[in-house]
Amino acid sequence: MHIDYLCDHPELIEELATLNFKEWGEFRPGQTVEHRIEHMRASCGKGAVPSVVVALEGSRLLGGALLIENDLKLRPNLTPWLAGVYVKAEERGRGIASQLVNRVVAEATALGVRELYLYTDTSQSLYARLGWEVVEELVYDDLPVTVMKYTTRQ
């Protein structure tokens, strides 16, 4: 298994965007798979915000994660964000999510980012184990979520 930039594997953009849409599309009323594909394509930077990394086994997609400017409309002052951390169900339990998160943290650190944010409704313990701290609990689009922060070592 290795982690690479999605922009170096453009044939996987549609697959990752579709997986993201199936996982979280219900939280973005009015958004379509096509919107998600375009957003994923637009986020495909390399060594920049935004960028997308993917976990691969050979050429097979296992999961992905994004480094984006903002992921929570309620907190426009917080930036940048780790978002869309997704691992295919059949690949979970192998530490892939942790590796994706650590890669995005490394990318952000290399860019001089001092604080990186995320929000989650179910994975607080995963992020806490990786060094993330709770900033606040809030309700976003009728969903209770935890906003977390990672302070990089500059």
Rank of each mutant, 00 (worst) to 15 (best):
E137D: 12
K88Q: 14
W24N: 08
V49Q: 07
Y5P: 03
R75F: 13
Q99P: 01
S125Q: 14
L126P: 01
L72D: 12
A128W: 03
P50M: 06
A89I: 06
N20V: 13
R94G: 02
T109D: 08
A89L: 07
N70R: 13
N102Q: 14
A65W: 00
L138A: 08
S125D: 08
V145M: 03
I68S: 07
P50C: 05
E38C: 07
L138M: 13
Y119G: 04
T151Q: 05
L16Y: 13
Q99H: 02
E69G: 11
L100P: 03
A97K: 03
R60E: 12
F27H: 14
V104I: 13
H2E: 14
E90R: 01
L19A: 11
Y140R: 02
T146D: 00
D121T: 03
C44K: 08
E38Q: 15
V104T: 01
Q99R: 15
M148I: 05
S43I: 05
L111F: 10
I13W: 09
R92Y: 00
K73M: 09
V49C: 09
E69N: 12
G58K: 08
V54G: 07
Y117Q: 04
G64R: 10
V134C: 01
I3P: 01
E136Q: 11
I96M: 04
V33D: 10
G30M: 07
M148P: 06
A89P: 10
Q154M: 10
K73V: 12
H35W: 07
G93P: 01
E26D: 13
M1V: 05
Y5T: 08
G45W: 06
Y150N: 04
G93K: 02
V113M: 03
G112H: 12
A55D: 04
W132L: 01
P80D: 10
T122D: 11
L126F: 00
H9A: 07
H9P: 07
N20W: 08
P80R: 04
S43K: 06
R36W: 14
T109R: 15
A106I: 00
V54A: 02
V135C: 00
E38R: 14
A106Q: 05
G93D: 05
N70L: 06
R36S: 13
R153C: 06
E90V: 09
T79W: 14
Y117I: 03
G25I: 10
H2L: 12
H39Y: 14
E11I: 09
L67P: 04
T18H: 14
E26A: 14
G95I: 00
F27D: 11
L67C: 11
P50H: 03
K73S: 14
Y140S: 04
V135W: 00
R36V: 10
A97E: 04
N20I: 15
A55Q: 03
E91K: 15
